[in-house]
Simulated assay, not measured.
Amino acid sequence: MSLSTPSDRFERIRGTDLLSTLRSDPSSLLGTLVVAALTGVALVGPLVLGDPTSGSLSNSLQAPSLAHPLGTDPLGRDMLTRLVYGARVTLGIAVAVTLVRLTIGMVIGLVAGVVGGLVEESLMRLVDFLFAFPGMVLALVVAGVLGPSLQNALLALAVVGWGSYARVVRGSVLSVREEPFVDAAKLAGVSRPRLVITHLVPNVAGPVVVLASLNLGGVLLAASGLSFLGLGAQPPTPEWGTMIANGAPYLRTAPWLINAPGIAIALTVFGFNLLGDGLRDALDIEEVSH
């Protein structure tokens, strides 16, 4: 992997080459369109639809129709409205958790890679400790201790999933710091903070962006799983995992209660995975563990 200039990888992330590469690959283009469409629905949909928590028992469990394209739930609430509002909640959780993970992992990885020695060893042993437990199991424990709520689920997922970012960033830093331009910057008297900001961070941005895009789908699944188990978003919040949990008792009589949010989750994860693969190819990242 060539790193000829300190900001080459960063410029590729921002430049038109990335966009043209994504457009030229059918699967990457499909993933981009899916993610863009879902993001648009999450941002604009709630502005034009009604209250997702209002309904009438006289409309309870109505099958899909022109009046209610995705049917209604046991309380007579429109499923399409709740699904659209749920897109904002569920995607918001996934993005927030990923940003927190990325921030923590970026800081830990940079410190470990730059400082080295005992500090690096200690931080990496902490990462190893996190990887000793399945992430979802650890998140369940944390969420169970903190109590069922959307905020606690977000916190539980954020604090147990930053290890992969720390590993990727540390590995990238160890590779980049051996490059000639880093040695030249040190000889020129560049301070360590400036060296990190102007030389190291731009060159580790590519793998981190790819990892984040691949992680978004997994985070969304985990967040929906916690809500399904009653540890995440609580009724009447229209979160996709909660909607599936509420519709489970009516699987035989009203399958649309589960089908709609289930398909939405699958489609979103599918889109993020395709987008992540496209970014990996566009940025020439050989392998990113997620």
Rank of each mutant, 00 (worst) to 15 (best):
M106D: 02
V114G: 05
V210F: 02
G117A: 00
V204N: 00
V204A: 01
L3G: 06
S20V: 05
E120W: 12
S28H: 04
P193E: 08
V35I: 12
L216H: 10
E287M: 09
G109K: 00
T237E: 09
P134N: 00
W256T: 12
V159C: 07
I258N: 06
T268M: 00
L155F: 15
G116W: 04
A188V: 01
S20Q: 09
P238Y: 01
V182E: 02
G262P: 04
G105E: 01
P193Q: 08
L267R: 04
S149T: 15
A248D: 01
A266W: 12
S7N: 08
L216Y: 11
Q234K: 10
V111I: 14
S56K: 12
T72G: 10
S60F: 13
A184C: 09
L3E: 11
A212R: 10
G71R: 06
V89Q: 12
S27Y: 11
G206H: 08
G55K: 10
T5R: 14
T253K: 10
G225L: 11
D277K: 04
W162A: 06
A222M: 13
R170Q: 13
T90L: 05
V107W: 10
E287G: 07
V111A: 10
V95E: 07
V34P: 01
A63L: 14
A222K: 11
V41N: 00
Y85W: 13
S65M: 04
A153H: 08
N215D: 15
A67T: 15
I258L: 15
A156M: 02
L275H: 06
A156F: 00
R77A: 11
F129S: 14
L118E: 13
T81L: 03
S122Y: 13
V196G: 04
G225K: 11
N246T: 14
L43Y: 07
R14A: 13
V100N: 00
A233G: 01
Q151I: 15
L22A: 04
T21M: 05
P69M: 11
L33W: 10
V95S: 09
L30K: 01
P261N: 08
W256G: 10
S65D: 04
W162S: 04
D51S: 10
V145F: 15
L18S: 00
H290W: 04
S172K: 06
E11M: 08
N152H: 15
L30R: 01
L99G: 05
P202V: 06
A260M: 09
L154V: 15
W256A: 09
L157I: 02
L123D: 12
L221N: 04
G171N: 06
T16W: 12
V204W: 00
T81H: 04
Y165H: 08
R23V: 03
M136L: 15
P238D: 02
L138G: 09
L43A: 11
A212Y: 12
T21K: 07
V219N: 10
V119R: 11
S122H: 09
S24C: 02
A42G: 11
P193K: 07
G117Y: 00
G161V: 12
R23A: 12
V141S: 07
V208E: 02
E239I: 11
T103D: 04
P235H: 01
D8V: 13
G232P: 02
N259A: 15
L99P: 05
I13D: 03
L75N: 14
T72L: 07
P236E: 03
V114W: 12
P202W: 07
S172P: 06
